[in-house]
């Protein structure tokens, strides 16, 4: 899941400038699940904006609408009808959703309400951990299901570096476990340390140019 959190209100206000009226567009996908951009958070943002403008003697006309996902055209029928009534859309989707909305309404300023953080999982309620950098060449099968690209601060493929602390945490932050300490521990317990004994050669990075995935059955349809 994509994890995001709301930008500071001042930053959103500054982006808005004189744009008025405004539609806060909520997203029912990932940012809803991580409690950053669903219906409730979109309405909270609208309320915060109204209050902020009011406190400064102004008035912002702001409505909210939340759709199932902002990364697929199928969910935009209602917004297509509404968009023309506004000078700007503030999207509470991830960076992909914001771009999808911006592409759909190219004459309208579409502004991000969130900072998109990472691909991760729920550690606990309201607690998310980064676990995937979408590198496009997964090595988890050989690293005990622990990602060295994401979870090692230096993305080492032949770790650990010399900075592992005595308690197995990373030198950059005592709250972050050393990925390679964990990889070693898990593979030792599985009796599979041989997986990391040989030198892993330099990798061919797959995430340096914008990527497209087209599923095999659809290649013909798109002429790809």
């Amino acid at each position: 899941m994509i994890i995001a959190h709301r930008k500071p209100l001042e930053e959103i206000v500054e982006m808005l400038g004189q744009l008025n009226p405004v539609l806060v567009l909520g997203c029912g996908g990932c940012t809803s699940i991580c409690l950053a951009g669903g219906q409730r958070e979109a309405e909270q943002l609208a309320a915060d904006l109204r209050e902020d403008y009011g406190n400064r003697g102004g008035q912002l006309e702001v409505n909210t609408y939340t759709i199932e996902r902002q990364c697929n055209a199928d969910f935009f029928a209602d917004i297509d009808r509404l968009a023309g009534d506004y000078q700007a859309i503030v999207s509470t989707a991830c960076g992909a959703g914001v771009q999808f909305v911006a592409e759909r309404y190219p004459r309208l300023p579409v502004l991000p309400a969130l900072n998109t953080d990472f691909v991760g999982f729920d550690k606990d309620v309201g607690w998310y951990e980064e676990n995937c950098r979408t590198c496009g060449d997964c090595v988890l099968g050989e690293t005990g299901g622990i990602c060295p690209v994401t979870r090692c601060a230096k993305s080492l493929f032949n770790g650990p570096c010399g900075g592992t602390r005595a308690d197995g945490t990373c030198e950059v932050d005592p709250d972050i476990p050393c990925a390679w300490f964990e990889i070693h521990k898990r593979l030792r317990e599985q009796g599979r340390l041989e997986l990391i004994t040989r030198v892993r050669p330099a990798r061919e990075w797959q995430n340096q140019i914008r990527r497209t995935v087209i599923q095999e059955p659809y290649r013909e349809r798109y002429g790809k």
Binding site: A153, K154, S155, C161, R200, A202
Partner: peptide
């Protein structure tokens, strides 16, 4: 931005 394109062992091999 930390580069870490290759790691120290890969540098040795290079």
């Amino acid at each position: 931005k930390g580069v870490f394109d290759i790691d120290s062992i890969q540098l040795i091999a290079m």
